[in-house]
Design a protein around this nucleic acid. Structure first.
Length: 673
RNA sequence: GCUCUCGUAGCUCAGUUGGAUAGAGCGAACGCCUCCUAAGCGUUAGGUCGCAGGUUCAAUUCCUGCCGAGAGCACCA
């Protein structure tokens, strides 16, 4: 019996009692954690609602406190319940049997559902995140997407789901075309020149994606003054979409190299992928044609014969009202016969849900250091010898699909969902989720620090939007490196005796902890105004604080003998009454045990609310509670053996929970700090 | 014009099926390293939860209006 299970059974008991005693059917009654430990471990403010319902049904007026008294008796029958108090106007405050819980929780796994995540019978969900246009280096805004997505992946797995991670590669869009225009027309380079440049950059420890970052910004500037160059863009874009020509080969090289660079950046943050679906295949394999056929056969789209959309295939979209500027209907096929982005996206979403009725071909893209494979889509059947280890796993067919895309795409995402629903009504509505989040903008100070001139208009704003086209943004690799450098200096101060490798490794873990937590502590719909001072902080509400608490907890166990934990567990289970006695006077210790026991429940909450910040806040709270415990109780020098055992077991439970929570946030616990 | 999101301490933010005395971090002032790591702990100061109504036993939370901020509404992706 863990916290989650007990809560469920108590809740059922309340519902049962309401039905049997008062003849009232209650659904999803709320159970809450009382504001203070003195008020118990679980509270049901259910008597108020019951009093109301009874009055409605029978006209009889009942005092909420009397109602609560009757439920109280039913709840106290549970062996894990120590007592129930009726408090205030009619709250039911449940106090758990502390000692019984502790002995039960001693050896229990903190995340029991995690092992379900690689079982075939577990529900499969597809999560798309990152999806950076492969024409430049990733910036901090992309990192928010990836960290949010990756953390949601980890949370979903911890909640028992089988997860497939997709990183969509828009390798045939205008953004790639712009960089290609730069290479061909501004730099007058051919594919071989670019390959040579790439080699040169590698020798100078420069990055191909950084080079493209600057080139992209330069092309943007040129477009403003050079109409001729701008005219080349459409031509280049067309050649790239068509494929199998010199320009498309060059574009493919550029896009693929950028994808490799971005994957490396994300690997630094512990973010990995299973599949890279590319737009080129969605085009060449005619995914849209299939979706188009499905929609036409079902009669859910129509060809406009007159009006301003004449000649276009449109999808009715009545949730938005038409006005003078905009039609309510959404164009999927232009009057020239080409498909819009939305059309392609509907086809892709159908594939993710296993509802399109066709599939990509796949080949191996790369292998991570530990052997994990990343696959990429391709438009030709691949001959992979059966003896070869790498066979593509079955991709797509998600029971649920989450798209991590910024909130500015809310409207197109809504259209996609609607489109899918037209073809597959029940699945489209239920299974498609837009996991939206607000952008990362720059504080005026941060923009100035990056060396950008701030216009008077921007100065009056509280934040400045980043822009790849202007080259305005904090590059992910720069920030990670800066965090690592700062962390290394701190490690150096404290542990100069370590080897450089050890110090670097710790500094890296700290940098990742700081950055991931910084991006996760904000809820999704909060605009993150990036400020260097805040992002580089290692104190206060940071990932580093949480890591430090874990390291402290671990250091206790380094100083204990290996058998001490076992002995403590034995002592606890053998001296039940004595432990109960001690615990009854140690609210703070019990509060920590209770909090540490709520990881599973917190993760379920975070999944249900699709909000990773819930777990981040919980982790920080747990770390803080542990630090307080650490400060108030000296474990190694405790003389009472029962008390010492209690403290050891509490510290062990907390560190296991804290480590698991941090792991779910993608943050490692260093050996020392 | 229409749609969506937001307004909580000096600053940055939590508060997610309506519940008990609205919480953190930073910043400010003052304490704590003979003692398991001070990347830590404690104390103090700081709030008409934008404004006005409504629903409710109960509203920061739900509804309406107003004020203010941001985003979105292409035969662009």
């Amino acid at each position: 019996m863990n916290f989650t299970q007990l809560q469920k059974s108590l809740r059922e008991k309340v519902e049962e009692t309401a039905k049997n005693v008062f003849n009232v059917e209650l659904e999803n009654i709320s159970a809450e954690i009382p504001p203070r430990t003195e008020l118990g471990d679980l509270a049901f403010p259910v008597a108020f609602e019951l009093a109301k319902q009874i009055k409605q049904q029978t006209g009889e007026k009942q005092n909420p406190r009397n109602i609560a008294e009757q439920i109280k008796t039913a709840l106290e029958a549970n062996e894990f319940v120590e007592k129930v108090e009726v408090a205030g106007a009619g709250y039911l405050n449940v106090f758990y049997n502390r000692a019984k819980f502790l002995s039960e929780g001693l050896t229990a796994e903190v995340l029991p559902k995690l092992n379900l995540s690689n079982k075939l019978e577990s529900p499969k969900i597809c999560i798309e995140h990152t999806s950076v246009n492969p024409n430049k280096a990733a910036h901090i805004g992309h990192v928010r997407n990836s960290v949010l997505g990756d953390t949601f992946v980890r949370i979903s797995r911890a909640d028992g789901n089988r997860v497939e991670v997709q990183n969509y590669i828009d390798n045939t869009g205008v953004q790639v075309a712009d960089v290609v225009v730069g290479f061909i027309y501004l730099l007058e380079m051919k594919l071989d020149d670019i390959k040579n440049l790439d080699t040169e950059l590698k020798e100078k420890a420069g990055n191909f994606d950084y080079y493209c970052w600057d080139l992209y910004a330069r092309v943007g500037q040129e477009y403003a003054v050079n109409e001729e160059l701008k005219a080349k863009r459409a031509k280049v874009l067309h050649l790239i979409e068509e494929g199998k020509n010199e320009t498309s080969e060059l574009a493919d090289y550029v896009a693929t190299r950028n994808v490799e660079c971005i994957l490396q950046t994300m690997e630094r943050l512990g973010i990995r992928y299973d599949l890279l679906p590319r737009e080129s295949e969605i085009l060449h394999l005619q995914f849209w044609a299939k979706a188009f056929e499905l929609m036409k056969n079902l009669g859910v789209i129509r060809l406009e014969s007159e009006g301003k959309n004449a000649g276009c295939w449109v999808m009715p979209f009545d949730s938005h009202t038409a006005n003078e500027d905009h039609e309510a209907d959404k164009i999927l096929v232009r009057s020239n016969g080409t498909v819009t982005y939305t059309g392609k996206d509907i086809a892709y979403q159908l594939w993710k849900l296993g509802e399109l009725g066709m599939d990509f071909y796949y080949k191996l893209f790369s292998t991570y250091a530990d052997g994990k494979e990343v696959w990429v889509t391709t438009d030709e059947p691949q001959e992979i010898p059966k003896t070869f280890a790498a066979q593509p796993p079955p991709f797509g067919h998600g029971e649920m699909v989450y798209n991590v895309i910024d909130t500015r795409q809310a409207y197109p995402q809504e259209v996609v969902k609607k489109g899918v629903s037209l073809i597959s009504p029940e699945k489209g509505e239920r299974a498609s989720h837009h996991l939206s989040y607000e952008m990362v903008a720059l504080s005026p100070e941060a923009a100035a620090e990056l060396g950008f001139q701030i216009s008077d208009e921007d100065k009056s704003k509280s934040f400045i939007e980043m822009s790849g086209r202007k080259g305005l943004g904090v590059k992910a690799d720069d920030l990670i490196t800066r965090l690592e450098t700062n962390a290394l200096a701190e490690v150096e101060k404290r542990h100069s005796e370590l080897t450089l490798d050890e110090k670097n490794s710790i500094a890296h873990q700290i940098a990742v902890g700081a950055l991931r937590y910084f991006l996760l502590k904000f809820t999704r719909n909060t605009v993150v105004v990036f400020d260097f001072k805040e992002a580089l902080a290692f104190e206060g509400e940071t990932g580093v604080f949480c890591q430090y608490s874990s390291v402290r907890a671990n250091s206790i166990f380094k100083k204990l003998d290996e058998t001490d934990l076992e002995t403590a567990i034995k002592t606890i289970s053998e001296n039940h009454s004595e432990i109960a006695e001690i615990l009854s006077g140690e609210d703070e210790v019990w509060a920590l045990i209770a909090l540490a026991s709520r990881l599973e429940e917190t993760i379920s909450h975070a999944v249900a609310a699709t909000e990773p910040a819930i777990l981040a806040k919980y982790t920080f709270g747990l770390a803080k509670a542990f630090n307080l415990f650490y400060h108030n109780h000296k474990i190694l020098s405790e003389e009472n053996p029962s008390k010492k055992s209690l403290l050891i077991v509490t510290a062990d439970l907390t560190r296991r929970s804290l480590t698991a929570a941090l792991d779910t946030l993608g943050i490692e616990v260093p050996e020392r700090m």
